[in-house]
């Protein structure tokens, strides 16, 4: 314990907090994957019309692109979605302090991007997240389909960007507080990831492969 509650919180976030978050994240992801895979599927005795595995693999990659015509029908969701996802990985993987974290954890590092660029990407990602949220709320169909969980995961995804940006730019609370809140917000994201729609970070691979596989068996192109 120190006399500075901000430092105490930061030290907790870097120590026990990070341990808890890592354990929950990995436990949850493995649990979900095993559960999903062990569900199994009834044997399909019909002979496949095309190579299902090939179709499955192709679909994993082909669905990185929007379906024909969809991008024009809902441009905000598509452009915002791409910007956010690209921004998320750029900021996560190419900010100096983040690389330091990976280097410490996995023993490998890589060159980072200039911090002004990282900050610009952060702002673009936040704007994209706000845009997709507005698009969600303003569209009656999407609004009807949205549940509490959808808004909750939006907040949990947005917070690491916001707190990180504020910490780096000395906004709001003193730096040590912001840094602690930033680490905690990421830990919150790690904890909820396996048990919400955010699981798609892992399950998208299985879902896409399975879709492609089924369609491949039927001889349908995807």
């Amino acid at each position: 314990m120190t006399s500075d509650p901000a430092m105490d919180l930061l030290m907790w976030a870097r120590g026990p907090g990070f341990q808890i978050a890592t354990v929950v994240l990995l436990f949850g992801i493995v649990l979900r994957i095993v559960e999903i895979l062990a569900l199994g599927r009834a044997r399909d005795l019909a002979p496949p019309k095309a190579s299902p595995a090939q179709s499955g693999l192709r679909t994993v990659f082909s669905r990185f692109l929007p379906r024909h015509g969809m991008a024009m029908r809902s441009p905000v969701i598509h452009i915002g979605g791409y910007l956010f996802h690209a921004g998320f990985f750029i900021v996560l993987l190419f900010f100096g302090p983040h690389i330091q974290l990976f280097e410490e954890g996995f023993g490998i590092g890589w060159p980072g991007l200039p911090s002004p660029l990282i900050e610009a990407v952060t702002v673009i990602s936040m704007v994209a997240l706000v845009a997709v949220l507005i698009a969600r709320v303003r569209d009656p169909v999407r609004k009807l389909l949205s549940t509490f969980e959808d808004y909750a995961v939006w907040v949990v995804t947005f917070l690491p960007f916001l707190t990180g940006f504020m910490a780096v730019n000395k906004l709001g609370l003193p730096y040590t507080w912001m840094m602690a809140l930033h680490v905690l917000s990421v830990e919150l994201l790690m904890v909820v990831l396996p048990f919400t729609k955010l699981t798609h970070a892992v399950t998208f691979l299985f879902a896409r492969y399975y879709n492609g596989w089924v369609n491949g068996r039927k001889g349908a192109a995807t």
Partner: peptide, 25 residues
């Protein structure tokens, strides 16, 4: 740096995955 965890989580991570697999099974 202050950006990195203070504790080594490699052992815990492996344990968490093993328990996760067990629970999943």
């Amino acid at each position: 740096t202050l950006a990195i965890p203070t504790e080594n989580v490699a052992g815990l991570a492996m344990g968490a995955m093993a328990v996760g697999a067990g629970a999943g099974a």
